Lab assay of single mutants.
Amino acid sequence: MPSETPQAEVGPTGCPHRSGPHSAKGSLEKGSPEDKEAKEPLWIRPDAPSRCTWQLGRPASESPHHHTAPAKSPKILPDILKKIGDTPMVRINKIGKKFGLKCELLAKCEFFNAGGSVKDRISLRMIEDAERDGTLKPGDTIIEPTSGNTGIGLALAAAVRGYRCIIVMPEKMSSEKVDVLRALGAEIVRTPTNARFDSPESHVGVAWRLKNEIPNSHILDQYRNASNPLAHYDTTADEILQQCDGKLDMLVASVGTGGTITGIARKLKEKCPGCRIIGVDPEGSILAEPEELNQTEQTTYEVEGIGYDFIPTVLDRTVVDKWFKSNDEEAFTFARMLIAQEGLLCGGSAGSTVAVAVKAAQELQEGQRCVVILPDSVRNYMTKFLSDRWMLQKGFLKEEDLTEKKPWWWHLRVQELGLSAPLTVLPTITCGHTIEILREKGFDQAPVVDEAGVILGMVTLGNMLSSLLAGKVQPSDQVGKVIYKQFKQIRLTDTLGRLSHILEMDHFALVV
Rank of each mutant, 00 (worst) to 15 (best):
A226V: 10
L220P: 01
D238F: 10
A157I: 06
C165A: 05
A71C: 03
L181T: 03
A226N: 10
V206M: 14
L184Y: 08
T68K: 10
M250V: 03
A155Y: 06
P138Y: 15
K82S: 09
G185K: 06
A130C: 07
P88H: 04
R18P: 06
G205A: 02
I240T: 01
K75N: 10
L124P: 08
S63E: 08
P145F: 03
P33N: 10
A8Y: 14
L210E: 01
L77Q: 11
E40I: 10
L42K: 10
E40N: 10
K271N: 15
K36R: 15
R121S: 00
S50N: 12
P49K: 09
A207E: 01
K98C: 05
E34S: 04
Y233T: 00
L220Q: 02
P88Q: 05
T191I: 01
G205L: 09
G31P: 09
D234K: 06
V255M: 11
R266K: 14
F197C: 05
A60Q: 11
H232E: 03
H67I: 09
Q242T: 11
L42G: 14
V168S: 04
E40D: 13
L230S: 08
R91P: 08
S199N: 08
K83V: 06
R58D: 12
V10D: 05
K172H: 03
I95W: 00
V168C: 07
A265S: 13
I80Y: 03
H67R: 03
C275F: 07
A231T: 12
M173E: 01
P49F: 08
D133Y: 09
N225Y: 00
D120H: 05
T191W: 00
L220A: 03
L210I: 08
K247S: 01
H67P: 03
D198M: 06
E187W: 08
G14E: 09
P88D: 04
E131V: 10
Q222C: 00
G139Y: 07
K30W: 06
C52K: 02
E187T: 11
G139K: 02
R182M: 04
L241K: 05
S199W: 05
W54L: 06
N216W: 03
K137Y: 08
V90R: 03
L42C: 09
P21R: 06
E104N: 09
D86E: 13
K39G: 04
G263P: 01
G259D: 00
E62V: 07
M250A: 02
Y223D: 01
